[in-house]
Design a protein around this nucleic acid. Sequence first.
DNA 1: GTATACATGTAAACGGTTACATGATTCT
DNA 2: AGAATCATGTAACCGTTTACATGTATAC
Lengths: 186, 186
Amino acid sequence: MALEHAILVSLLEQPGSGYELARRFDRSIGYFWTATHQQIYRVLRRMERDGWVEVRDVAQDGRPDKKVYSVAPPGRGALSDWLAEPVEPESVRHSLAVKVRGAAFGDPAGLIAETERHRAVHAERLARYLAGEQRDFPESAELDAGAQLQHVVLRGGIAYERMTLDWLDDVLATLRRLGGAHPDPH
Amino acid sequence: MALEHAILVSLLEQPGSGYELARRFDRSIGYFWTATHQQIYRVLRRMERDGWVEVRDVAQDGRPDKKVYSVAPPGRGALSDWLAEPVEPESVRHSLAVKVRGAAFGDPAGLIAETERHRAVHAERLARYLAGEQRDFPESAELDAGAQLQHVVLRGGIAYERMTLDWLDDVLATLRRLGGAHPDPH
DNA sequence: GTATACATGTAAACGGTTACATGATTCT
DNA sequence: AGAATCATGTAACCGTTTACATGTATAC
């Protein structure tokens, strides 16, 4: 399980509240790990209990108080231990691929709109990642180790989205070829 | 949830026992959906209860009897319904990416061996997919709709593994650059 | 003789998702 | 006035993973 380790990394990069962590998981961390605020709150409580993180209550005017978490030494130790452990390569789950194979027993042309919707989502993600890259990693800048590692992870997100867009185009071409045989009134 | 739908697709392509389904999830279906035999047995029981699949007991000499499942009409209906529903694009989880970002707070060079291990796993998967492609989809063959859809999904698996290998090379180059710059005695 | 493949299952623990709940502030 | 954002939480459910359990047959 890497959620607690992802939280440790995020808090080492920048301390923050559970809510702020949830925002980061939506944005920058989202291209390699996702989590909802409920998950994050639950794990933060466990990590606090285990002494991995420290909390500081911060009063804010107008807004509710927030609990700002930062990594305690045992948390750093836990992260080091985990970094040294092997993890298994993740296995993939693409429900759209299940649908594509299922289309053989239904209506291939009916999947075109769905595939186009997925394509749009991935095109939007790619645009967002590319904008983030231009903003945070300008060319010919001297980057420290942390920034270089962040950049290589972002390049992974970009490569993933590009590959996915190309594949979805391949799927669309295949579905249209099959649909052409028995045309879609849509 | 797509596990039951992945099972429906697999059983439509070819009826089989829970054990055989688990083998297929290890092999051909593994590049877009994974499942263990425990999951499959439990879901098959539920699907049988709901009338989605039919069971036939097959005695085998020497080996234990097996229960061969096939899709019943309500199962086909459930698959059609699901094909027409939109599904959300999956979000990614790559613990290796968490580790790469975490390496900023530990020992980047220590991740090289782990990254190489992942690279080897993905290289092996790619080789397996390419061999399967040559075997099942020879060039200049006339393919029916089902085979064309299977092929486009396999091309997705191949594209994913190629992209991942390239990215892992990028990660290795980055880690080596950092390790060379300031060898961390920690 | 040992390991692997075939074949099916139970039980417990864990992780993730969804719904509900509260309450103030800022933006349109 | 209504919606979105900030901020934290509880509870119930569902899905997944891991460990355990059993037994035969084949290959090395």
